[in-house]
Design a protein around this nucleic acid. Structure first.
Lengths: 337, 337
DNA sequence: CTGTTAGCGCTTTCAA
DNA sequence: TTGAAAGCGCTAACAG
């Protein structure tokens, strides 16, 4: 591939001049500029990014560390972040850590070696080993969807407690008196807050509830929702509504209901959390407490860029509201007690 | 951040020696090796990837150019590719070109500037402008899910014609005599082949069919499926089954059926194509012609790596079979004609 | 306005 | 087995 040197030779100018026209820095006479541009054209020149990064001490690369690219929530998030950053001239390096602490560390090292200008991270929340690498490399990070108080970083998240409260209140207002709650993780701070909010709402209105919590952590939220629902529905009397703390788990619940011959929503109301696109596609469409996923992504990217290159900007802590989206999977309970 | 020079100083050796222990190349006496390792430890050393790339003329970065990260098919594909390449010591740079030819070109330039060692590309199929950048930069590419005969590259794809045939045969065997076919693109080679295969099967068995093709290209396959189904269902006599050439479009069809008061599958059978995870989550679960998405990803990554670094290896052309997955959305037609 | 030059951090001959 | 030194492609002083 052609280098700046080839261009200089062909255009009959110095390296510096070529560099100036490429970067539009300094003044170059129109005549020389034209020559250089022409040379670049004929040689099909593309600047060498690694060389530039080495010299400028910036890569215009941003790391994105998430559990899985595959997941509807994180996929949408990644897409939003990528679009925003691309427009700003940054590229993203995607890392799916699969909630595995070892992979998190490996990926973090990778990103620091790559000298990314910043990183957006949605970590497991368990081990915090990875964080020190970023700190040591002085790479700014923003945490998304996770609140880890021990880490000095900007944060962008949703008001999970409020969302939990909101979702539960929807069921209360519909008249449900017996509700099942499905947590998907004991470790996730976000999930715990949702659960707290939901329990608070139910408690305030004297609604009976049962909580299902997984004994081991898993990425298989669908299966988890399915199993949890089976368990909750075997109780006597059985709940007339189930609030699953992620949409994917809620979908598992709906299938469990079908497998038990229960119609949704007439015999069992189901509500989820996240607002993934897929929820709207279900039949019946899923009622959910929606996170503004794209906005989370944009905000995170925006907040991060504000810190990139700055010596020591303030950490920002942004909390976005959730929104209750009532669709077809919830209704009044069949029988009033 | 610490550099190799700092390590050398602290360990009291030369730069070359440090480099040798980092890369495990050449022989270093155990004593010195220990000193170096210790120095690296205390300084928290992480090699500078851009510098290394500059020198070695390889980046261990692979570009992935897809329509959208968000889409269930491409998200799963990207995830599979990322996992495979990570294990092989490569990182991926994700680019969602949104089926926009200009963005494809922009992203391609970006990837060549980044000096990626290779790229996996699922292009729109319309404009081929982007390809020349890779060619000129001598960057090996593998085309996934698209067969562009004009481009010299390896290819990994599914037998789309066969898949179309297979899906249509399923409907034929169930006894349907009047079928709607929904294409989602006039330009995509893959979609056209599916359509041909399906038409062939129906033709061979004297089944009447009507084809819906979009007048303009769109990414909104759900909406497209919905509208197309409305159109097809307004015919007299109406089809007893609809074969949508992507799963997302098929989901739109199911919703259209519901909106018309038609039960799936008793009054309308619906079959899709792709085998996205979400199809299994629907109620009723979607019958589909599944692509082995993860395998496509692994194969593509594998084929690409086989070409990375090689001067002029053969282009490979891999075709994987589709698999009919019969679920709940198809059944025999209600009334025999 | 233009050119010369010194590195950025690393790998890799080539000598010792 | 070890070290000195050149150079990957580019940018940014510094001179002129």
């Amino acid at each position: 591939m052609a280098t700046i040197k080839d261009i200089a030779q062909l255009a009959g100018v110095s390296l510096a001049t070529v560099s100036r026209v490429i970067n539009q820095t300094g003044n170059v006479s129109p005549a020389l500029r034209e020559q250089v541009l022409a040379a670049m054209e004929t040689l099909n020149y593309q600047p060498n990014a690694p060389a530039r990064s080495l010299r400028r001490r910036e890569t215009r690369l941003i790391g994105l560390l998430i559990p899985q690219l595959n997941h509807p929530f994180f996929g949408t998030l990644a897409y939003a972040i990528e679009r925003f950053l691309f427009a700003e001239g940054f590229r993203i390096l995607v890392c799916s850590a699969e909630e595995d602490a070892d992979r998190e560390v490996e990926y973090t090292q990778l990103l620091t070696r790559q000298r990314v200008d910043g990183a957006i991270v949605a970590p497991t929340g368990l081990a915090l080993d990875w964080a020190k690498y970023f700190v040591h490399a002085n790479i700014p990070i923003v945490l998304i969807d996770r609140n880890l108080p021990d880490i000095a970083a900007s944060r962008v998240m949703v008001d999970n407690w409020q969302g939990g409260y909101q979702g539960a209140m929807h069921l209360v207002e519909l008249g449900h008196r017996r509700v099942g709650l499905i947590s998907v993780s004991r470790h996730s701070q976000a999930i715990r807050e949702r659960l707290q909010g939901a329990m608070q709402a139910l408690h305030e209105h004297n609604v009976a509830y049962e909580v299902y919590e997984p004994s081991v952590e898993t990425l298989q939220q669908y299966d988890l929702g399915f199993q949890a629902a089976l368990k909750l529905l075997s109780q006597q009397p059985r709940p007339s509504a189930i609030f699953a703390l992620t949409d994917v788990a809620a979908i598992g619940v709906m299938h469990a209901a079908v497998s038990q011959g229960l119609a949704v929503p007439s015999q069992l109301s189901v509500i989820g959390f996240d607002g993934i696109e897929l929820g709207a596609y279900l039949i019946p469409a899923l009622t959910t407490v929606a996170q503004p996923i794209e906005q989370l992504g944009y905000k995170a990217a925006e907040v991060l860029l504000r810190r990139v290159g700055r010596v020591q900007a303030e950490h920002e802590h942004i909390v976005l509201p959730t929104q209750l989206i009532v669709r077809a999977s919830t209704s009044m309970p069949l029988l009033a007690e």
